[in-house]
Simulated scan of single mutants.
Amino acid sequence: MPNFSSRGLNMPESPIRKLAPYAVKAKEKGLKVFHLNIGQPDIKSPQTAINVLKNIDLDIFAYTPSEGNFDYRNTLKEYYHSLGFEDLTRDNFIITNGGSEALSFTLSCLCDHGDEIIVPEPFYANYYSFAESIGVNIIPVVSTIDTGFSLPNIDKFNELITPKTRAILITNPSNPTGYLYSKEELQKLAEIVIKNDIFLISDEVYREYVYDGLTFHSILEFPELKENVIVVDSESKRYSLCGIRSGFLVTRNKKFLDIALKFAQARLSPSLVGQIIANAAHYEPKSYIENVRKEYEERRDLLIKLLNEIPGVICPKPKGAFYCTVELPVENAEDFCLWMLKEFEYENGTVMLTPAQGFYSNQELGKKQVRLAYVINKEDITQSIKIIKKGLEKYNSNR
């Protein structure tokens, strides 16, 4: 057998998708599987995006500029102007194939093999995959469920900075916890970044989905961070367009943009069709986002209420995004998730959950936890939690 790279062998499986084959088997048995495992919204994509796709009239589906189409980058400029960042031009944007490529480009631009990125955990599982693929070490700052996953004392960040530290990476609002960073917390992070002359990378793909009348604050708001800030953004969750793979980088750092463009050129171009669809989505009436936000907030309230009524379950109330991280009264959440798909059914259905271990660098910390995505309708949420409750009762009665 020929040899394989250590990089490939060490690449972690996606905790979000690793149980998918068992869900397929459950469906083959005739069960309805409620998918709380993956952030794939059931919300209809904007009609403007659907219409433009149906009416694309091109004789050649050609390459686009490596940095992205003029029209789309101009639309993004206008979108960011509406957020209050009127100094940005289209040249502050590089279009990528999803937010994932944006983050991969960012780490590749900033880090050499053995460099370090500080990341509050639990964190989006693919951060670890992106880092592993280029030999970057993730240094975690642990937040805990008993504090609602709020940031620990800022001294924890200072203690972890070394000559190898290249950036602090946050997701705001958070995937997998739904935690929303306050302006005061971001200010403290900004001070650390300036003091150590490193980058602050902020994944802000869920910025529209903040609840309870709270305000989202972008790291672009801090003028002192002009040269030290990189924002990762995407249309996937904003407009329920996961499959078109349209994301982008935003920064005021000209040197970073020049380097990132070289990586963009190496992969030739972002998706032509994806950019056409994404551009059209921004012309949807603002009521689209407002209505989706209201729907997610109602789903969140229902989900959290039902979960916290189950004995032994701990679920902090997320402030944004559409995820929550939940502690279950089990010793091994992954074993429970697998058992639910392989062995359990209730009223001809079962539930697919994501074990939270993969969102931690120290997987023992997430051993009793799962991540849920409230991207299914309220009726299905109610049935899903009923199934989880019955499943926990039976699972624990057998142990």
Score class of each variant (00 low, 15 high):
residue 2 P to S: 12
residue 10 N to R: 13
residue 11 M to N: 14
residue 12 P to W: 08
residue 16 I to D: 11
residue 17 R to K: 13
residue 21 P to G: 05
residue 21 P to D: 02
residue 21 P to N: 10
residue 25 K to C: 07
residue 27 K to Q: 13
residue 30 G to E: 01
residue 37 N to V: 12
residue 43 I to G: 00
residue 46 P to Y: 14
residue 47 Q to S: 15
residue 51 N to K: 14
residue 52 V to K: 15
residue 54 K to N: 15
residue 54 K to C: 11
residue 58 L to W: 11
residue 67 E to D: 00
residue 69 N to Q: 09
residue 72 Y to W: 11
residue 77 K to Q: 15
residue 77 K to V: 05
residue 78 E to W: 08
residue 87 D to E: 10
residue 88 L to M: 09
residue 90 R to W: 14
residue 108 S to A: 11
residue 110 L to S: 00
residue 111 C to D: 01
residue 116 E to Y: 08
residue 116 E to R: 14
residue 116 E to G: 05
residue 116 E to N: 14
residue 119 V to D: 09
residue 121 E to K: 08
residue 128 Y to T: 02
residue 128 Y to E: 03
residue 138 I to K: 02
residue 139 I to P: 04
residue 140 P to W: 07
residue 142 V to N: 06
residue 146 D to R: 06
residue 148 G to D: 07
residue 150 S to R: 14
residue 150 S to A: 09
residue 154 I to F: 15
residue 158 N to W: 02
residue 160 L to P: 06
residue 162 T to C: 05
residue 164 K to D: 09
residue 165 T to S: 11
residue 172 N to D: 04
residue 175 N to L: 15
residue 175 N to R: 08
residue 176 P to F: 02
residue 177 T to A: 03
residue 177 T to Q: 04
residue 179 Y to I: 11
residue 180 L to R: 00
residue 181 Y to S: 05
residue 184 E to H: 06
residue 185 E to G: 02
residue 185 E to A: 12
residue 187 Q to K: 08
residue 189 L to P: 00
residue 198 I to A: 07
residue 202 S to E: 15
residue 202 S to Y: 01
residue 204 E to R: 04
residue 207 R to K: 12
residue 207 R to H: 11
residue 212 D to C: 10
residue 213 G to I: 04
residue 213 G to N: 05
residue 216 F to M: 02
residue 219 I to Q: 10
residue 224 E to R: 03
residue 225 L to P: 12
residue 225 L to F: 14
residue 225 L to T: 13
residue 226 K to Q: 10
residue 227 E to L: 02
residue 227 E to Q: 09
residue 231 V to W: 06
residue 234 S to Q: 01
residue 235 E to A: 15
residue 241 L to H: 14
residue 241 L to T: 08
residue 254 K to I: 13
residue 258 D to I: 08
residue 261 L to H: 07
residue 263 F to L: 14
residue 263 F to Y: 15
residue 264 A to E: 06
residue 267 R to N: 13
residue 269 S to D: 12
residue 270 P to Q: 00
residue 270 P to I: 05
residue 271 S to R: 09
residue 272 L to N: 12
residue 273 V to N: 01
residue 275 Q to N: 11
residue 276 I to W: 09
residue 285 P to G: 08
residue 288 Y to H: 03
residue 291 N to E: 13
residue 292 V to G: 01
residue 294 K to R: 14
residue 295 E to L: 15
residue 300 R to W: 12
residue 303 L to Y: 03
residue 306 L to I: 11
residue 310 I to L: 13
residue 316 P to A: 11
residue 320 G to H: 07
residue 321 A to C: 10
residue 321 A to I: 09
residue 323 Y to K: 00
residue 331 E to R: 12
residue 337 C to G: 08
residue 339 W to A: 06
residue 341 L to A: 02
residue 341 L to R: 00
residue 342 K to W: 00
residue 343 E to P: 02
residue 344 F to N: 10
residue 345 E to F: 10
residue 346 Y to V: 01
residue 350 T to Q: 08
residue 355 P to Q: 09
residue 355 P to G: 13
residue 357 Q to A: 06
residue 362 N to T: 09
residue 363 Q to L: 09
residue 365 L to E: 11
residue 366 G to S: 03
residue 370 V to G: 07
residue 371 R to E: 06
residue 372 L to I: 04
residue 376 I to W: 01
residue 379 E to K: 04
residue 379 E to M: 01
residue 381 I to V: 04
residue 382 T to A: 09
residue 384 S to M: 00
residue 385 I to M: 02
residue 385 I to W: 03
residue 385 I to F: 06
residue 386 K to I: 05
residue 387 I to P: 12
residue 388 I to F: 13
residue 396 N to H: 03
residue 396 N to L: 13
residue 398 N to Y: 02
residue 399 R to M: 06
